[in-house]
Design a protein around this nucleic acid. Structure first.
Lengths: 230, 230
DNA sequence: GCAACCGGAATTGCTGACAATCAATAATCG
DNA sequence: CGATTATTGATTGTCAGCAATTCCGGTTGC
């Protein structure tokens, strides 16, 4: 929950760093879904011009974290059931592709690295450092995607995982069963290391199946009650 | 091969319209892969300020059509074998998801619309209007994706298809076998209409498999010769 | 009482000018 | 003569200000 601080130092482009700060605030939940973003206020807090803020907001819009209502406002994107359903279904196929391609590329050293990340995850859970565990979970998936050596896939995956993280923060979502979580990840990593593309693919895709099914049901319910109300 | 013309009229935001014009020029092949884009020149041709051009270029960068080299240049993205491989593999899983979801949503009217698009495609090919045929091909895939009712998927698919189109223009790619093309599309549409998710999914994914396999082979060759040279 | 209309304040959209950076070339030194 | 360092021109990055649009309150007319 750090405060927005001034930039103007370092080497990266100003608008990127402005986007970094705003993004961090969104992902931390400081700026909740639907929150309005005022260009002037942000430019004062970040000590950059409005144009730079505008560029940063446009980037975040491209990442799906922010929405622009022309001539009217910028706001943090929604975290509705429909959004979550979109995010998790997309994640599923991206990770399916990632796992398939990772199998084709993985080396011994890569396999060792994945195994060590799983070990870290296990340790964090045993020691009840659940925030760390979530971070490591994300790292593991990113590491598998990286093995796919697919620039566009990696970028899309990063954006989707940002939205997953945002949705988890907004909805207060936490894994229910850590043993199962560990088992699933271990099985996926094993399949990738064993170069068993079919299994890896299936596990990657089914990793979120429970959430997707729940969300699909909620979505159907929502549509039904909406139809009944209208 | 129309010339870039002035904007400043209509209701949409200026930077969006600027992006539209530049995008059209890229997709038409007027601006080839690697071409440098000068902010000043574009701003003069489009009769908008440099800031507006900058915003437009940033959007196109988000769509993957343009790349920014900080402090140095904007250029049209590459159309290398690696790029094509990325584009087609991503397209595969996006359309796989789209087909699966379309099956869950499709109505009789939707089915009729898809069939009529296939008929249009067949007619265009029989009459040897191959440019039209390509457009209709794209329309058909977009129509199936639209049935998925998945905003994020539709957007990503639009971006990927833009890149597919660009790559086709750059490489002079043309389908080799129009009969097979028709048969594949008809089979996919039939499967979606029949609500056969498994078949639809498989057909959507395998639709580009020939290209992907070719590209994978080319990519491996490229890496091999590079390694031999280095 | 209520709807339509009109201002003014707040906010976003766009621009021109200035600063920072880079690439290419000329000048300098060994 | 070759390598390294200024210099210069071109290009991108950032800013502050004006213009256009929307939102919200009050006012007017019915």
């Amino acid at each position: 929950m750090t405060k927005l601080t001034s930039l103007k130092s370092e080497k990266r482009l100003l608008d990127r760093r402005a986007a970094d700060q705003i993004r961090a605030h969104i992902l931390d939940g400081v700026l909740p879904a639907g929150a309005r973003l005022l260009e002037t206020q942000l430019s004062e807090e970040l000590e950059v011009s409005r144009g730079t803020v505008r560029s940063a907001l446009a980037q975040l819009a491209g990442e799906g974290l922010v929405q622009q209502v022309a001539f009217t406002r910028w706001e943090v994107s929604g975290a509705s059931v429909a959004d979550a359903w979109e995010i998790y279904t997309l994640r599923g196929v991206l990770e399916e592709l990632g796992a398939r391609l990772a199998v084709a590329n993985i080396t011994e050293a890569d396999g060792a690295r994945l195994r060590s990340i799983v070990a870290d995850l296990l340790r964090a859970i045993r020691e009840e450092r659940f925030q760390d565990a979530t971070d490591i979970d994300f790292d593991l998936h990113a590491a598998i995607i990286a093995l796919a050596r697919h620039r566009r896939l990696a970028e899309q995956h990063r954006f989707i995982m940002q939205q997953v993280r945002f949705h988890m923060v907004q909805s207060g979502f936490l894994p229910k069963n850590y043993d199962e979580l560990i088992a699933e990840h271990a099985a996926l990593v094993d399949a990738v290391i064993a170069r068993d593309a079919e299994t890896a693919e299936r596990l990657a895709r089914s990793h979120n199946e429970a959430e997707v099914k729940l969300l699909t049901r909620l979505l159907r319910q929502g549509e039904a009650t909406e139809a009944a109300a209208g």
